[in-house]
Design a protein around this nucleic acid. Structure first.
Lengths: 319, 319
DNA sequence: TAAAAATACTCCATAGGTATTTTAT
DNA sequence: ATAAAATACCTATGGAGTATTTTTA
């Protein structure tokens, strides 16, 4: 029997008309997608795509079958949604903490998704720096915290959500930065704009960059990434920006380029943290699943726009 | 993502309301089906069946989701059918030979299926004993032969189709035969009714049975299984009957019981044979796939009626 | 000659099997 | 007590990964 995986890979292929990009979209390697398409073709006994060097083209059969495939896929998705909505899980109150360099980018997509899939959940979000969040988590003022790994505290467990790579944000007038991907090593601290103290992102940036602290514009410690980028746009320096922020921030400003790193790029690992003694671990698992999906989708969408490299299926390197 | 396999297993479970019988229907073992159902429930985050000792019962969710599941499954089946119908494979003329102890039971289901799935195929069927079929296959008068394994001829290849077990057909007055499953060994040749010489089934029956040839009713060598069963019904003896014939023959006669063997039961291996040098091997593969499915379905349906043991996923013993 | 898909290969996760235990009536 | 489902355990296949080759505009 044909499989839903084959159908969804073919759907991706039909959208992109390109094996490599379809594989990206499906979060698998190109040979894996090729193999599944080949298997599907063999099961059906017909070619579905004409392989050409330039733009791939669907065969007549492929075009004819595509709507039926999509109908099946969307029905299955509808089933899964329907079920998760009526899910009795995740009821009651949940207080969520998030770091400021994440909240403005994740929350707009996460909140509606939570509301849709857990209508019985009464959730509130508080934004603060990691140190404060951890304290509130321990004291019980917060139930879950979304922040960057690692947080090493006894009694605090976590669930990994997604990897958020950094890109370099530079002014168009900044002649020192090349257009080709940056090497992750030997990034100069010179003219680097940083957030104010307490933000984990500031520390991450410092540990990635090399040079004397006083060459960085440390005194301009900004309070938000938006501010930081305004400064970059006005030629005051450069900054390291988490990829999840790119899509949301880029429309607001004109004179900035985002330069990616060659892989493996420096990144922060975003996770959800909770008290390991809690009785609601199940709930946090469900919550984490959705947060991971929402975050991944934002990153994917951002890369689609910016033409950056794809999200790796599973990478574990830290910074 | 949920899988079509999970949906089809659940469909089987909903039909039978019994894990063991659902597994039979799906041609897998009971633990395998249990695992897939459990996986489906876990993916959806809800129980779908209430496990009780007696008749299993679908949960509310299970009942609500079942129609959606079936809709997906039937759409997928429709896709596969649609594709196979327009398949360009299997055109032209194909002359098929079949042994007489198989043709009357397989052909009524096979012919319409072939016509449906390969409308461009012009096929004809000839019925004869194995020896004659092989000769015609070698000479080119036939393209494919469906018969019992083994046929050891240079230049003749085969594709296994299905295993056809034997059952013992006895008159209700026959006091020597128990109602419990027969042991496959030490079947007496006494009072055994046989086909006339040349039929491979006669030789298979003889090799299964033990005793002096002259104690068998060898002189009454019948020309068809139908005749043989009429003789059984009239108390003239017993006979070994291939399972594929049971469903078709049993309605015609009253006073007969079919007694199965304990597993592994004696059986004949039905295969399709063709010239290995042929350029149409691909066609024979496609043909074999359909013939195997049709044969398996007949056996399954027969067992459902008779309450016999299930078709094993893959067994290779001979006789 | 370069980009893109196919191939080669290795490895691990999954699904399936058999044998057995647990459970519920 | 007994039928039925779950569990344990093992094996094998398939699907995914990386590295490489082949193909074709």
């Amino acid at each position: 029997m044909i499989t839903l995986k084959q159908l969804s890979y073919f759907d991706a292929l039909a959208r992109t008309l390109h094996f490599g990009r379809a594989a990206e979209r499906a979060h698998v390697s190109q040979p894996a997608l090729s193999a599944q398409i080949a298997e599907l073709e063999s099961r059906l006994g017909r070619r579905l795509v004409e392989r050409t060097r330039g733009a791939i083209v669907l065969t007549e059969s492929g075009q004819k079958l595509l709507p039926a495939f999509r109908r099946v896929l969307s029905e299955v998705r509808a089933i899964e949604e329907q079920v998760q909505q009526q899910s009795g899980l995740l009821t009651g109150r949940m207080r969520i903490g998030m770091i400021p360099t994440l909240a403005p980018y994740l929350l707009p997509a996460l909140a509606p998704e939570l509301a849709k899939r857990f209508p019985a959940l009464d959730f509130g979000v508080r934004e603060a720096i990691t140190e404060s969040l951890v304290e509130q988590l321990r004291s019980g003022d917060l139930d879950a915290v979304i922040a960057a790994m690692p947080i090493r505290e006894p009694g605090i467990a976590h669930r990994m959500l997604f990897e958020d790579r950094f890109v370099m944000a530079v002014s168009n007038n900044d002649r020192d930065i090349l257009d080709s991907p940056l090497n992750r090593h030997r990034i100069a601290l010179d003219r680097m704009l940083l957030l104010e103290e307490g933000h984990c992102l500031r520390d991450q940036a410092l540990s990635i960059c090399q040079g004397h602290r006083d060459t960085a514009l440390v005194n301009f410690g900004a309070t938000s990434l938006t501010t930081l980028l305004q400064m970059v746009a006005h030629g005051m320096g450069r900054t390291l920006l988490p990829e999840i922020a790119v899509s949301a921030e880029s429309p607001r400003l004109g004179d900035i380029r985002f330069v990616p790193f060659s892989l493996p790029a420096p990144s922060r690992q975003i996770a959800v943290f909770f008290r390991s003694a809690s009785e609601r671990i199940q709930d946090y698992e469900a919550f984490a699943e959705i947060a991971a999906k929402v975050g991944g989708d934002i990153l994917d969408a951002g890369r689609e726009n910016m033409g950056l490299a794809a999200h790796p299926p599973a990478a574990d390197q830290m910074m």
